[in-house]
Amino acid sequence: MFWPLGHLLSAQFGWRYALFWYAAIAVTTIPLNCFISDKSYWVWPDRAPIRSTQPLASTRRDVLICGIIYALATTGANCLNAGMSAHMIPVLIGLGLGVSTAVWITTMRGIGQSAARLCEIMFGRRVDPLEWVAPSPADNQAEILRSKKMLDKYSAYVGAEPYFTLVRQALGELVDGEHFFDVVAGDISYEVRYDLGWPLVVRGRAELMNQFQGYVGSIRLRSADGLIVNKADNGRVVVIEYDVHGTILATGASYENRFCSIIELENRKIARWRDYMDSHAAWTALTAKKN
Rank of each mutant, 00 (worst) to 15 (best):
H7R: 07
S10I: 01
R16G: 06
W21I: 07
A23S: 14
A23P: 01
I36P: 00
D38C: 04
D38W: 10
V43A: 13
V43L: 14
S52E: 14
Q54C: 07
A57T: 08
S58I: 14
R60H: 11
R61G: 03
A77Q: 08
G83I: 05
M88S: 15
G94D: 05
G96L: 08
G96P: 03
L97G: 00
L97V: 01
G98R: 02
S100T: 10
T101N: 07
A102R: 00
R109Q: 12
R117I: 12
I121C: 10
I121T: 11
M122T: 14
F123Y: 15
F123T: 07
F123P: 03
R125H: 14
R126L: 09
R126E: 11
A134P: 01
A142N: 10
R146T: 10
S147I: 11
L151K: 15
D152N: 14
K153V: 03
Y154A: 01
V158S: 14
E161G: 02
F164Q: 06
F164Y: 15
T165F: 03
V167E: 02
V167P: 00
Q169E: 13
Q169F: 07
G172M: 01
G172H: 01
E173A: 13
L174E: 04
F180H: 04
V183D: 00
V184K: 01
V184R: 01
V192L: 08
G197V: 09
V201I: 14
R203Q: 14
G204N: 06
E207T: 15
F212C: 04
Q213A: 10
L221W: 03
D225N: 13
L227H: 05
N234C: 08
V237A: 07
V238R: 01
I240M: 12
Y242F: 15
T247D: 12
I248Y: 06
G252H: 05
A253N: 11
Y255I: 04
R258N: 11
S261I: 01
L265C: 07
N267F: 03
N267Y: 07
Y276A: 05
M277I: 10
S279T: 15
K289W: 02
K289A: 13
K289Y: 02
